[in-house]
């Protein structure tokens, strides 16, 4: 069974009298260990698809399976619990909590999981070391550069050892050098830690760092120039 299975997902928005359907029966399969990049024009619905996989948005129809859980069937509370255990989210604008130190920001998702304080501390230290920010543990976000903040954001996303890490334009607010550092870091997270990643980007160079490159066109996903078909048709 695939790690993530998106089945015939439809997502619509109302814009005045008009109904916009950025996702019009999307199918997607992500295997464990994949690093998937997702590109598309502005407003094509790539962030919407990422948010649906991350469980922070709701489908109009269709199903999203992560492992053996159909996340579209979970209640809001259960979905929050599921996110805490299974999703690591890297935001474009870092979204660190300003009143917490880098260490505390990374620790924040772990407070939702049942584990001892010692285990929690060990996991935070490992995550901080993975993004090479051990020496910045006591710093507040305002005391760090944009690149450092994003590395803390990545540490926060991987600290729970989630089923999937989603990254919404993770280099969108960074300069070229820092972008390179962050993309290298995401590749390391995928290769060395074996984590599955889904990254939305508008940058073709960034997209090429992934192991799979997808495009969202007219409400459907395209891979290597071909539309992604439902699993049944693919196997046939």
């Amino acid at each position: 069974m695939s790690l993530v299975e998106v089945v015939d997902v439809v997502k619509e928005f109302k814009s005045g009298e008009e109904t916009i359907r950025p996702l019009d029966g999307v199918h997607l399969t992500i295997e464990e260990g994949d690093f998937v990049s997702l590109m598309g024009a502005s407003g094509s619905g790539k962030s919407t698809l990422l948010n649906l996989v991350a469980g922070i948005d709701e489908v109009n129809s269709g199903h999203i399976f992560v492992g053996d859980v159909d996340t579209t069937q979970l209640t809001r509370g259960k979905l929050a619990d599921w996110r805490a255990a299974h999703v690591g989210y890297v935001f474009q604008t870092h979204n660190l909590i300003p009143v917490l130190t880098a260490y505390e920001n990374v620790e924040l998702p772990l407070l939702l999981l049942s584990m001892s304080a010692a285990e929690r501390a060990k996991r935070v230290e490992v995550a901080m070391a993975a993004v090479d920010l051990t020496n910045r543990a006591g710093h507040y976000p305002r005391q760090m550069s944009g690149g450092q903040e994003q590395r803390v954001g990545i540490a926060r996303a991987i600290v729970t050892n989630p089923t999937i890490v989603v990254a919404d334009e993770p280099t969108g607010s960074l300069d070229d050098d820092t972008t390179e550092q962050i993309l290298t870091l995401l590749q390391r997270v995928n290769r060395e830690l074996g984590m599955t990643l889904l990254m939305v980007t508008h940058d073709a160079d960034a997209a090429q760092r992934a192991t799979r490159e997808l495009r969202l066109e007219r409400g459907h996903l395209v891979e290597n120039g071909k539309p992604i078909l439902p699993r049944a048709l693919r196997t046939a």
């Binding site: 922070i56 909590i97 926060r156």
Partner: peptide, 14 residues
């Protein structure tokens, strides 16, 4: 607003 949404995205209940 964004910070509170981030907390929800991380997994904190409302």
């Amino acid at each position: 607003i964004r910070e509170l949404a981030t907390l929800q995205a991380i997994g904190y209940r409302r």
